[in-house]
Design a protein around this nucleic acid. Sequence first.
DNA 1: TTCGTTGCGTAACGCTATAACGTCCGTTAT
DNA 2: ATAACGGACGTTATAGCGTTACGCAACGAA
Lengths: 130, 130
Amino acid sequence: MTARDLTKNQEMVLGALSAADGPLSAYTILDRLRDRGFRAPLQVYRALDKLLDYGLVHRLESINAFVACAHPHCHGHGSIAFAICEKCGQVEEFSDATVQSRLGDWSREHGFKPSKTAIEIRGTCATCLA
Amino acid sequence: MTARDLTKNQEMVLGALSAADGPLSAYTILDRLRDRGFRAPLQVYRALDKLLDYGLVHRLESINAFVACAHPHCHGHGSIAFAICEKCGQVEEFSDATVQSRLGDWSREHGFKPSKTAIEIRGTCATCLA
DNA sequence: TTCGTTGCGTAACGCTATAACGTCCGTTAT
DNA sequence: ATAACGGACGTTATAGCGTTACGCAACGAA
């Protein structure tokens, strides 16, 4: 399941995301990989699906974009939160045990079985405020 | 700003959302309002924009859909969380002061000025588990 | 009146994601 | 070996979500 043996396409998509200084849309990834042989969205989406499975990439639901995981080595990092700057596009990835446990409590109390949690704060980062 | 005087279109869109038993996509709203004169997506999106402003409607980022606010009378309810059942589509809206304050703390500590926060738990609801 | 703002209607377009084929290749079981 | 299977891949087409750009009408403020 935690297959760290990436295919060529997965390697390239992860490479594109790691090289970027912020989140990328699937179509932007496609464009950046065109000269490496990519031709269709599905090539990107299929690779992303796997990378998401492996926890190497995160999806930012509120902006339809993807980022390489900032902490790819500590797997199992429950639910992660993101602070997304609407001015510069930079994303900070963090996790908070209290938040996680509170949301876990709510789920337990309501008989809800969570599969994936998205926590995304949109706003303006410190750099852009200065 | 908190204009409770809705226009005809806003009224109809809010009505469609309130009548629905779950979240609706903009295009589904459009279809349901076609016989009331709606013809183009923009009519829906413009109404939704205002309703979101007024806090009468929420957007579910992770499924590109919209719901009528469950507590439209207590405005100013900071950041709201949603539990979205992937089986039946039902959504539970709730808010947790601890979660809000933890995320607020993080923002303060990092000089991040939040504008809008999305918290969405996807999973399976109690009813569907039974 | 004149101007600015707000909402509305229509058409066209762009971005995001998936469906439905078929192919190739490596693994496993017989 | 080879048949059968699963997984990744390539291509085309299509579905779904959202916006741009234009013009018009109504209303309130200067």
